[in-house]
Simulated scan of single mutants.
Amino acid sequence: MTALGARLAGELSHLALCWRIVRVDGVALGFTTHDRPLEIAGLRHLSAPGMAPSAVVRSAGLEVDTMAIEGALSAAAITAADLAAGRYDGAEVTLTLVDWREPAAGSEVLARGSLGAVASSGGADPGFVATLRGETAALEATAIEIYSPECRAQLGDARCRVALRGLRERRAVAAIDGRTVRLDGLDAAAAALFGAGRLRLLDGGDAGLDRLIVGVDGDGLQLDAVLAAVPGARVEITQGCDKRFATCRDRFANAGNFRGEPHVPGGDLLARFAIA
């Protein structure tokens, strides 16, 4: 029996829940339901009594385990600005049970997984609500690829093999109107190359966060979310790909690595008929 197991078997217990959150940008945060901070595995877990999970259920089967997490917003930890920026989306989370008198005695892992979309709950006492998806959620992913006329690779990945070095530029923000960003020296012809690409902010509180370029309006880049930046802030933009074979062949000279079936007949083949 482990040291923690022996403590659990006693008549009295001194237990606390601990959360270890590792964001996609590499920042690690720790929280505990104890009324004082705890040092566990080299990470300081801040006291967050209002942060609590729903019922913790573990099964031996292959069902997808999910759990709701609620907590209070804190200026020193999880802020409304960070939630709006998507810093916690996809973060890796581990929920453990420890004896707060001696955290080094060991811990019991209750749940482990990744966060879905994290949103502010609003109301008189602003907080956040998130869903923790267990490790079995990976079993929901499609195990095989389905044929399609569009490329299934991502521009610049190991299957595409297009070098992104020459497809990136650094520019300064000229103006922001909602989700549309205009950059210094970027005209309409140049902006068209960045559709379906990405924009990374290099300055300010959101530095390091990526935004997907979902469309192009003249010389403006339309993003998937509002960019918290001011004119003059530096950004890095990466060109995108519409995943069509003609684009892969003519623009990137990469037809040999195209991961799609451009000549496979589509569903409209059944609706075609001969014209006399």
Rank of each mutant, 00 (worst) to 15 (best):
L97M: 07
H34C: 13
R251N: 04
D203M: 12
G156S: 07
A246E: 10
T96D: 13
A192R: 13
A60R: 11
G240Q: 02
C151Q: 07
G260R: 01
R36F: 06
P37W: 07
S13R: 15
A85N: 06
R133F: 12
R7P: 09
S47F: 00
T79E: 05
A41C: 08
G197Y: 11
I146K: 05
I40R: 12
M67G: 06
A192H: 05
M1T: 05
L167A: 03
A72T: 15
P149R: 14
R133M: 13
L115A: 01
P149M: 15
R36L: 02
V118E: 00
R244A: 13
R36V: 05
R20V: 14
A225W: 05
R165N: 12
T180M: 04
V22D: 13
I176C: 01
L193G: 07
E150H: 14
M1E: 12
S148P: 01
A276K: 10
R251M: 03
L270M: 10
E140D: 11
P53I: 10
G26C: 12
A111G: 11
R251V: 15
E63Y: 00
V214K: 10
A105V: 10
R272L: 12
A233S: 12
L164M: 14
L132E: 07
G204I: 02
I176T: 03
T2K: 07
P265V: 00
H263E: 14
A68T: 14
I40F: 14
G208I: 01
A16V: 06
V226G: 02
A84E: 08
L199C: 07
L29G: 02
R171Y: 06
S74A: 15
I40P: 03
T180I: 08
L270V: 14
V129W: 05
D224T: 12
V129D: 09
T247W: 11
A276D: 08
E92H: 11
T33I: 08
G50C: 03
Q239S: 05
E92A: 14
V162C: 07
G122I: 05
R44F: 02
I237L: 00
L15D: 13
C248I: 02
A68S: 10
I146Q: 12
R20E: 14
E70L: 04
S74R: 14
A274G: 11
S114H: 08
V173G: 04
A48L: 09
